[in-house]
Design a protein around this nucleic acid. Structure first.
Lengths: 133, 133
DNA sequence: TATAATACGATGATTTTAGTCGTATATAAC
DNA sequence: GTTATATACGACTAAAATCATCGTATTATA
């Protein structure tokens, strides 16, 4: 419980690498995959998602690959997690609420408070805090 | 990702009920189960665990059941989560580390910082914050 | 002695997460 | 223009975690 997924982990590893890479230099999914022992196809899809969201930039063809984009610094961790995994909340009932507590949920408020605390914590944390420091 | 489990959810609902119950009055697993629409056997096991950890007190036999213990106020959420689910961390490599990053994990430190932030947040939060307020 | 409760381990089902495969598209180099 | 190497993307399979059930033992009340 309260875990981040491998997808997020892999994304952070890749982003850190690209972030610290020489400016403008491209790095392919294959390179990253072999360097960090991450399944290639899986990493590829992760990089594609990051690219789609303009966190990284992609170049196709031989000698192609990815590099970090300027946007990456401005993104906070809440947004990053939601890009990678969809809506973030410690319980599901915030998004797809088909929860059927017979007599009304008694822990909604306290759960809400926990949730807000976590979100506000990640709001204040930028992607660069993870990929640089 | 970053979700609490149903087990924890059910525990909190049950604890809140017991907390707000008349002092000394017992409440059975069956009662709680039907009142909140929680699978009986599952809830039973959760209550047994809480009892084993002295968060609640159990009485066997007909007219038996559970009631809140005094200890429950002194427990923080980090401890509570760990009682319910074992070691708490946003990644596994803190406990059973058989992680095989070929060239050393590059995100260990930042992940650590996130982890500490979450833990310290839950350290400051008591079970009573959830079951009372 | 029958009944209603907790105690607990084993097993099965479901859901989520992780990983793979196949195919299309773009582009550099020859 | 053909080949090789890269990204793009959707469908599928595998593995793991979570959720739930079952069976049986124990305890204590009436």
């Amino acid at each position: 419980m309260l875990k981040i997924t491998r997808k997020v982990e892999y994304a952070l590893i890749a982003l850190r690498h690209l972030q610290q890479n020489e400016r403008g230099k491209l790095c392919s999914a294959k390179t990253l995959s072999t360097e960090y022992g991450i399944p290639k196809e899986l990493l590829a899809k992760i990089l594609q998602k990051l690219s789609k969201e303009n966190i990284i930039l992609s170049v196709k063809g031989p000698k192609g690959g990815y590099k970090i984009s300027k946007d990456s610094n401005t993104i906070n961790m809440t947004k990053f997690f939601e890009i990678m995994e969809g809506p973030m909340g410690i319980v599901d009932c915030y998004f797809d609420s088909n929860c059927e507590q017979l007599s009304g949920c008694t822990i909604r408020e306290p759960i809400n408070r926990i949730n807000n605390s976590i979100r506000s914590m990640f709001d204040k944390m930028t992607l660069a805090d993870i990929t640089f420091k």
